[in-house]
C-alpha cells in the first residue's frame, strides 16, 4: 500500500475522496429531507378518513418498500431520459437520449424510498400519542391546528426520533446506489481512484471508512437529540 496516494496534492486522492464524502452527505440530506416531506404526506393519507387516500398511501409504501432501489433508479434515469428525448423530438425536433441531471434523479429516487420508510415511522409515532390527550385538547376547545402545534406535533417528533435515525442510516447507505448512474460521491470516486491506481482494496476500504465515519457521527447526533427530546418526559 502506498500512502502517498492518500495525500491532498495532485498526486494524492485524499481531497477527491473527501469531496466525494461531501457529495454523499449532500445527496443524503436532500433525499432525507424529501423523504420526511413524503413521510408526513404519507402519514396524513394513511390516517385519512377517506378510503381512496389510505389506499393510495398503502400502494406507495408497499411498492417502494418491496422493489429494489436499484431498479427504481434505472427506471427513473432511463425512463425520464427517454421521455425527455421524446418531448425534445416532438417539440424541438431534436434527437437522441437526454441525460437527466444525476443529482436530482438520484435524490428523487432515494427520497421516495426514504419517504416510504419515514411514513411508517411517523404513522407509528402519531398513533403512539395517547388518545386521551387529544380528546382532552378537544374538550378544552383547541382548534385542530393548535392541537397539532401543542400536543400532537411535539410528541410525534419525539416518538419518531429513534425510527427516523434508522431511516437516516438507511438513506445514507442507499445513496451509494446513485453511483451507478454516475453521481461522483464516495463510491464513484473510489471506483475512479481504484481504476487509475490499481489499488481497489485500498480505495473501497477508504470509502467504507468514510461511510463508517458519517454513520458514527450521525448516530451520536441522533442519540443526543433523543436525550434532549426526552428531557421533559417523566421516567420512573
Amino acid at each position: 500500500m502506498n500512502f502517498g496516494l492518500l495525500g491532498f496534492g495532485i498526486e494524492g486522492w485524499g481531497d477527491e475522496m473527501l469531496r466525494g464524502a461531501v457529495m454523499t452527505l449532500l445527496v443524503s440530506m436532500a433525499a432525507y429531507g424529501l423523504g420526511i416531506l413524503l413521510g408526513i404526506l404519507g402519514t396524513f393519507l394513511k390516517l385519512s378518513r377517506f378510503f381512496i387516500c389510505r389506499l393510495l398511501a398503502d400502494i406507495y409504501t408497499t411498492i417502494v418498500r418491496g422493489i429494489p432501489e436499484l431498479l427504481i433508479i434505472y427506471l427513473v434515469f432511463f425512463g425520464g431520459g427517454i421521455m425527455l428525448a421524446r418531448i425534445n423530438a416532438l417539440v424541438f425536433g431534436g434527437s437522441g437520449f437526454i441525460n437527466l441531471p444525476v443529482f436530482v434523479t438520484g435524490m428523487t429516487c432515494i427520497g421516495f424510498s426514504s419517504g416510504a420508510y419515514s411514513a411508517e415511522v411517523i404513522r407509528g409515532a402519531v398513533l403512539a400519542v395517547p388518545k386521551g390527550q387529544i380528546e382532552a385538547a378537544k374538550a378544552i376547545g383547541m382548534t385542530p391546528f393548535t392541537i397539532f402545534k401543542r400536543v400532537l406535533g411535539p410528541q410525534t417528533a419525539r416518538l419518531a426520533l429513534p425510527g427516523m435515525g434508522n431511516v437516516w442510516q438507511l438513506t445514507l447507505k442507499h445513496t451509494s446506489l446513485i453511483s451507478v448512474i454516475g453521481l461522483v460521491e464516495i463510491m464513484r470516486q473510489s471506483a475512479v481512484a481504484s481504476g487509475s491506481t490499481r489499488e481497489p482494496f485500498t480505495f473501497y476500504a477508504i470509502g467504507g471508512l468514510l461511510y463508517l465515519g458519517i454513520t458514527s457521527i450521525s448516530n451520536r447526533g441522533f442519540s443526543r437529540a433523543e436525550k434532549w427530546a426526552a428531557k421533559g418526559v417523566r421516567s420512573e
Binding site: Q169, L172, K173, H174, S176, L177, S179, M187, S190, A191, P200, Y204, G207, G208, Y211, L212, T215, S216
Partner: peptide
C-alpha cells in the same frame, strides 16, 4: 454501518 455496495466491491 457501511453500504452493501461497498462490501460487494
Amino acid at each position: 454501518s457501511t453500504p452493501l455496495l461497498v462490501q460487494i466491491y
